[in-house]
């Protein structure tokens, strides 16, 4: 019996599922991370993921190709990011309330337009989602091939995003200004760089990533849009940013660890049968997020200017 529970770890299917489950979290966590590095907490994440899931799916359902679907989702996410930036960056409104407002607006607008476009659909219509592609040679490697190299292009895009964001933050002037906007905006201003613009760009880029994370759900993980399908993944991503201490590479690690536990519990649930009610398994991601935050709490060092609006001509 115990051997069965260990054996799960040695199946390629488990590792492949881990990567699939991690993808939306990877996009969302990277998106939130950029916003917070620039000094803006983006609580719009849950709603932006939801609207991204709807828009990407709907674009494909209306005849767009899958890649355009991702771009359209990213664009809509960016628009909500712009709205967030106008409130939280330019007007300096409370980031908490702005974010909750954006989450409420993005998800309700998404649901509203879904119902408006498809008023009579009872069973959710389906699209032809991204299909797994086998990477030549690599996918033939036993075990590793199935676990790592037989995924959809959207999955590989998630991994590429981690590399891109890592490079952006650590190796580009823009990345440096993002970090300064979140740590010491006065110093950035003294360099003659527009703090508000840098922060806004970060929020817009981050929100686009969140929407793409949502689109992964409807265009790669599943093939239909359901109300409430994001189901707290945005909030989990915020916990993961803290767990990752605001570093992209650790965000990838955190998302994978998290997804691995999730993939494991699904399989363990099948083994355990009806002994433990399924609701307790579904609680695990949320409980784990809280535990992860408690573990990270001791060494947590928030970006210094997080939550503090920057106003020109004002001393802090």
């Amino acid at each position: 019996m115990i051997f069965d529970f260990v054996e799960i770890l040695f199946t390629a299917g488990f590792w492949a599922a881990t990567i699939r489950i991690a993808c939306p979290l990877i996009f969302a966590t990277l998106g939130e991370l950029i916003c917070e590095r620039a000094g803006v907490l983006n609580l719009g994440i849950e709603g932006i993921m939801s609207v991204g899931a709807m828009v990407g799916w709907m674009a494909v359902y209306q005849g767009a190709d899958l890649y355009s679907g991702i771009l359209i989702a990213a664009f809509v996410g960016a628009m909500f990011g712009l709205l967030h930036a106008i409130f939280s960056v330019y007007l300096g409104a409370s980031q908490h309330v702005t974010g909750i407002g954006i989450t409420m607006l993005a998800s309700s607008l998404g649901f509203f337009s879904f119902k408006l476009i498809l008023p009579y659909s009872t069973t959710p219509p389906k699209i032809e989602p991204f299909q797994p592609i086998d990477i030549p040679f690599l996918s033939d490697i036993p075990f590793l091939g199935e676990a790592l190299f037989q995924h959809t292009p959207f999955t590989y895009l998630a991994i590429i995003s981690v590399v891109f964001i890592f490079w952006l933050i650590n190796s580009t002037p823009f990345g440096l200004s993002i970090k300064m906007a979140g740590e010491n905006p006065m110093a950035l201003e003294a360099q003659g760089i527009d703090v508000l613009l840098v922060r806004s760009m970060a929020v817009i880029l981050g929100s686009a990533l969140m929407a793409v994370g949502g689109a992964y759900l409807t265009m790669s993980a599943f093939d239909a849009f359901y109300f409430g399908m994001v189901n707290g993944r945005g909030w989990i991503a915020i916990a993961l940013v803290i767990f990752a201490t605001w570093k992209p590479e650790r965000a990838l690690l955190g998302a994978l660890l998290f997804a691995g536990l999730d993939a494991y519990q699904v399989r363990a649930q099948q083994l355990a049968g009806a002994v433990i009610p399924y609701q307790f398994f579904l609680m695990m991601p949320f409980l784990l997020s809280i535990v992860a935050m408690i573990i990270a709490a001791k060494k947590t060092r928030y970006p210094k200017a997080l939550l503090i609006p920057f106003r020109r001509g004002e001393r802090h």
């Binding site: 189901n231 916990a239 609680m283």
Partner: peptide
């Protein structure tokens, strides 16, 4: 006492309670 952000913990707890 541990500086664990309450925004996230209260949001996550909503999901836990609804499942309970």
């Amino acid at each position: 006492y541990y500086k664990v952000d309450e925004v996230v913990t209260t949001l996550l707890t909503n999901f836990i309670i609804v499942l309970l």
